[in-house]
């Protein structure tokens, strides 16, 4: 198992923190949308699940999804969103991490990333149940969490994978990803 070096750790936490800043701005959009369009609001919700899977897709190392999610949540908590965000970040990051672990950290496709997002979504649903957000009428429950699941897949699967591809084109990923076996064999030639 590839262990995290200090560089990986700092980059992971940095990704979490940048997401925290972005989420702060995203929150402004979300708050504007919130009262007028409850459907659109749930469709924007996937942004909150994106940080963990995104970090894993970028660094491709075990532990990054969980740590980045926790870092993003702690920045949000410091920015005034309250400590409950930290609990959500913890649960969501753990769920995404476990999903990647189930595929032995070897799959980076849209499907797997999207499933990680849905796992995070399920974890947040579990916390909502305990908190009391989920005591809604059945139709409202299905609409709310159904839309949120779709949004989770779109953001963590499709959006995250495409943004990571765009970042690969800039060349920064070569700084932080583990060196591939193919690259070693190229050296031998």
């Amino acid at each position: 198992m590839k262990k995290l070096k200090f560089t990986d750790l700092l980059v992971t936490i940095m990704i979490g923190v940048v997401f925290g800043v972005l989420m702060k701005f995203w929150d402004d959009l979300y708050t504007v949308v919130k009262p007028i369009m409850p459907v659109a609001r749930q469709l924007l919700y996937g942004m909150w699940f994106m940080v963990g899977p995104f970090a894993f897709l970028l660094l491709r190392k075990p532990g990054t999804a969980f740590i980045a999610s926790l870092a993003g949540a702690s920045l949000s908590a410091f920015a005034g969103h309250g400590i409950e965000v930290l609990m959500y970040g913890f649960a969501q990051g753990l769920a995404a991490e476990l999903l990647f672990a189930a595929f032995r950290y070897r799959r980076y496709s849209i499907l797997i990333a999207g499933l990680a997002g849905i796992a995070s979504c399920l974890a947040s649903f579990g916390l909502d149940l305990i908190y009391g957000y989920a005591a809604l009428e059945t139709w409202a429950l299905i609409v709310k969490y159904g839309l949120r699941t779709i949004s989770a897949f779109i953001f963590t699967g499709i959006f995250a994978v495409f943004i990571v591809r765009a970042l690969e084109a800039t060349g920064v990923t070569s700084l932080i990803r583990p060196v591939d076996k193919k690259e070693y064999t190229l050296l031998d030639q």
């Binding site: 560089t7 980059v11 936490i13 920064v172 932080i176």
Partner: peptide
Amino acid sequence: FAQSIRRA
């Protein structure tokens, strides 16, 4: 992200 990753 490109900037932040390089900086980190």
